[in-house]
Simulated scan of single mutants.
Amino acid sequence: MRSIPIQPTFESWRDAARGLLAAAVNPGDVLWCDDAAEVSLFGDNTQVSPVPGKAPKVPAVFFDIAKSAAAHTDPRRWGVLYRIAWRITHGGEKRLLEIPTDPDTRLVQQWCKAVGREIHKMHAFVRFRRVGVDEETGREQFVAWFEPVYQTIRLGSPFFVKRFASMDWSILTPHECAHWDGGTLHFTPGVSKETAPDEDALDDLWRAYYGSIFNPARLKVNAMRSEMPNKYWKNLPEASLIKSLIAESQQRVKTMLDAEELPVKHAPKNAYLESLRRMNGETND
Rank of each mutant, 00 (worst) to 15 (best):
L257M: 09
W180S: 01
R2E: 02
E93D: 06
P50V: 13
A22K: 11
D203F: 03
I65W: 07
K54H: 14
R163G: 01
L21T: 07
D198W: 14
H175V: 05
L219S: 03
M1A: 06
V131S: 01
A66M: 07
T188C: 02
G79D: 03
Q110V: 05
M228K: 09
T195P: 00
A114M: 08
W180C: 01
E140K: 13
T9Y: 01
T9F: 01
D204W: 11
I171L: 01
S240C: 11
R83S: 05
L155Q: 05
A259L: 09
K94I: 08
V39R: 10
L205N: 11
A85F: 01
P59Y: 09
S212N: 12
G79H: 05
D134T: 12
K57Q: 12
K54T: 14
S226L: 12
L41G: 14
V264A: 09
T101A: 04
C33D: 08
E118F: 00
K54G: 09
C177N: 04
A114F: 02
K234N: 09
R207S: 08
K243Y: 11
A208L: 13
F164Y: 12
Q250P: 04
L97Y: 05
A36G: 05
E194M: 03
P52W: 13
S244P: 02
G138R: 14
E118C: 00
A114P: 02
P148D: 02
G211T: 11
A267Y: 13
L236T: 06
P174T: 08
A267T: 13
D168Q: 10
D34H: 15
K231F: 11
G92E: 08
M256R: 13
A223G: 10
E176Y: 01
A55E: 14
A66N: 03
L107E: 04
M279Y: 12
A271T: 15
L96F: 04
F142W: 15
D34F: 12
G156K: 00
A24W: 11
G79S: 06
L41I: 10
L273S: 13
A247L: 14
V221S: 03
K231P: 00
A55Y: 07
N235I: 10
K220Y: 06
D285W: 15
T152Y: 00
P52C: 05
F159W: 09
N270D: 15
D203R: 10
I119A: 00
G138E: 10
Q250S: 14
P268H: 13
R225Q: 12
N270K: 15
G281F: 08
F164S: 04
N230C: 10
